[in-house]
Design a protein around this nucleic acid. Structure first.
Length: 616
RNA sequence: GGUUCCGUAGCUCAGCUGGAUAGAGCAACUGACUUCUAAUCAGUAGGUCGCAGGUUCGAAUCCUGCCGGGAUCACCA
């Protein structure tokens, strides 16, 4: 990565050498943008050098400043010192050379292949219900992180583990079998994942009825009397007892469990039903993924992976990384790592979640030979991944050090936590439709977009709506729990996706109106506007910003950068004329500047999965 | 209770590998469209950066303790 300020830093380095006979590395020279209440472009903080140079900060700053302006006269215009801060003002030639260099580059970010493969896992839904807002945050983070990594030269493999087996899908299957009367997504016109989700809810409701009825029986009263803790009300007792009831008394529970057992033993009828219902769900999921503009390179199904990992258990037992209890269960002692003892295999020899994840990691490594694996999973699983990664280190897996849990906070509604049981869930499909509808409504009120076909309009609304939604979610640092206000998510003013698109659209509009030849040369233009310098400063930062986002797996860095750049462009657009510039060279310069802003805006928004419209 | 994440303006968030008088947006109020798209721009108002110590020339940022909130600590996934 090129340090765009290297030239200036070298001048400062030389200045210190010549004035004080002292060597500093370029890294030691901290140049920051000068705060706007002071004069200058960049500021060198000289406090760190007071000890080595044995002088007061003001004196050092003054000495370095004078020397630097002398040495770097071609770019440095002047300097001023306030306390220990050396403010440097640069000449127009510097800014113009920077812009020219950026303009000449074929890529806004160096994406030359690193020769390293990274696997990113995200989404990974259960197949018993449709995707919701929580999945959206997951998907957008995973997709954006993948784009970012790709943009700096990694070969990214996007994947998900589809949790297609287990008791949950069996509940849907059973309910459909009992109450579905042969209905299908086609016959009802209901999207497949919603269709199957409906039967999951049907099951839960029927089970609730059954449970309530049972609570009135003598048998239930007996259970309550013998099992209750002191002072526990009947209501509280039965609330806590629900799982035990499901497992030990419930007729529906037994049938669902029987179905799971039948599935596990390979019963062909059950398997056929299972394939059919999951097929409906996948159709539904794919529609949602398409709507969000995301896709995957490979897929893993839990039904294929849930038995994996046992050979790793054997390996761990053989080299005594793990130990076996008398009952046959297998454990690992991670107390040395500050964690706990963790079970890896049940006493009956069956897998737990961890077993599966160990095996899946190994399989993926064999499949795609990625030494870095990123798991985009909510922060409720922090501990699980901490343990998983430690186990991999104990087993000395070659990819152990490259495993990373991109942990993100849950999404809350203004009314509190989303609760699927209470129906307080924001459905993904509904949300996507809503933001696009909202955009359409707003656009009609504004009455823009004349001379654009219906299809083109729909496409523009779609791009804007998704921009609003995606930006709203991605601008927040992943680690933070976020509050999702549906009303604010469709805002199109201020710090929003559409605001950024609007800056881009303005540039496209200017270009459309451009007539005749543009001067090839910008040499005659030297009285740069402050807004122009501001824009160039931002453009110079972009490549570094993307690399930072890639290192931290943090799309919010990009979102915030894009907003800043768009904001500066809007200001520039307001303050100066482009097509009616004061001179031909000024016009050429502004067009070049606009072009490069557009390039970076498009690139950066693309990293967030946001498409740019040409008009709006 | 142990571990861990979070706490910045009324609200939503930046800033956190230490630097100057802590920034945006929304909401409120005021102003700017015969001028390249006003989904814009400019202005007013809004803060004990959870609290208390410590390190430092300098702390929202690093360390410790406390307070508040979330998550997690299953032979569940």
């Amino acid at each position: 990565m090129v340090d765009r300020l290297a030239e200036i830093k070298e001048v400062l380095q030389r200045a210190i050498r010549e004035a004080y006979d002292h060597e500093v590395t370029l890294d030691q020279l901290v140049l920051q943008e000068t705060k706007k209440e002071f004069d200058g472009d960049y500021t060198l903080v000289v406090f760190p050098f007071t000890r080595a140079l044995r002088a007061k900060p003001e004196v050092i700053a003054d000495t370095i400043g004078a020397k630097a302006v002398e040495i770097g006269a071609d770019h440095l215009a002047s300097y001023n010192v306030i306390k220990g801060f050396l403010n440097l003002e640069l000449k127009p030639s510097f800014w113009k050379s920077q812009l020219t260099a950026l303009n000449a580059a074929t890529k806004v970010v160096d994406d030359s292949p690193k020769g390293e493969r990274v696997l990113v896992e995200f989404s990974s839904p259960n197949t018993n219900k449709p995707l919701h807002l929580g999945h959206i945050r997951n998907i957008l983070l995973g997709w954006s992180t993948s784009q970012i990594l790709e943009s700096v030269g990694y070969e990214v493999v996007k994947t998900q583990v589809i949790n297609d087996r287990g008791i949950a899908i069996c509940k849907s299957m059973l309910a459909w079998q009992k109450y579905g009367a042969g209905a299908t997504p086609e016959s009802t016109g209901v999207k497949g994942d919603h269709f199957v989700g409906k039967y999951y809810i049907e099951f839960e409701n029927r089970f609730k009825e059954e449970y309530s009825a049972w609570q009135a029986t003598d048998a239930a009263t007996e259970v309550y009397k013998s099992g209750k803790k002191e002072e526990q009300t009947k209501e509280a007792f039965f609330k806590a007892y629900k799982n035990t009831y499901f497992n030990e008394y419930s007729d529906l529970g037994r049938k669902a469990k029987d179905m799971l057992l039948a599935w596990e033993s390979g019963d062909s009828e059950v398997k056929a039903l299972w394939s059919q219902m999951n097929g409906w769900v996948y159709d539904g999921f794919n529609t949602t993924y398409d709507a969000l503009g995301v896709s995957f390179d490979t897929l893993y199904y839990e039904s294929d992976t849930y038995l994996l990992g046992k050979d790793l258990i054997d390996q761990g037992l053989a080299d005594e990384s793990f130990y076996q209890k008398e009952d046959g269960s297998v454990w690992i002692d991670l107390t040395e790592q500050g964690l706990d003892h963790k079970i890896l295999l049940r006493s009956d020899g069956t897998s737990v979640y961890m077993t599966q994840d160990l095996g899946t990691a190994q399989k993926r490594y064999e499949d795609v030979s990625a030494k870095r694996m990123i798991y985009v999973v909510a922060d409720e699983q922090d501990y699980h991944f901490q343990v998983l990664f430690e186990i991999m280190k104990v087993l000395e897996a070659p990819y152990a050090d490259g495993m990373y849990h991109l942990s993100y906070g849950m999404v809350d509604l203004p009314s509190g936590r989303m609760k699927s049981r209470e129906g307080k869930v924001v459905d993904a499909d509904d949300l996507i439709k809503e933001v696009i509808d909202e955009v359409e409504k707003a656009a009609k009120e504004r009455g823009e977009l004349e001379g654009v076909t219906q299809e083109e309009r729909a496409e523009i609304y779609r791009k804007i709506g998704l921009a609003a939604l995606k930006f709203f979610i991605l601008k927040v640092n992943p680690k933070k729990r976020m509050i999702f206000n549906p009303e604010e998510s469709v805002d199109m003013q201020g710090q929003t996706g559409p605001y950024i698109q609007n800056a881009y659209v303005r540039i496209q509009s200017v270009k459309r109106r451009l007539e005749g030849e543009v001067a090839a040369d910008t040499a005659g233009y030297t009285a740069l506007d402050p807004t122009e310098i501001d824009l160039i400063k931002s453009l110079m930062l972009y490549a570094e910003e993307v690399n930072k986002a890639a290192e931290n797996y943090d799309p919010s860095t990009i979102a915030n950068y894009s907003y800043e750049l768009a904001k500066k462009y809007h200001k520039f657009y307001h303050d100066v004329r482009i097509l009616k510039a004061e001179s031909e060279s000024a016009k050429a310069f502004r067009l070049m500047l606009s072009d490069n802003v557009a390039k970076v805006l498009e690139h950066s928004m693309n990293l967030l999965g946001v498409e740019m419209p040409d008009r709006m």
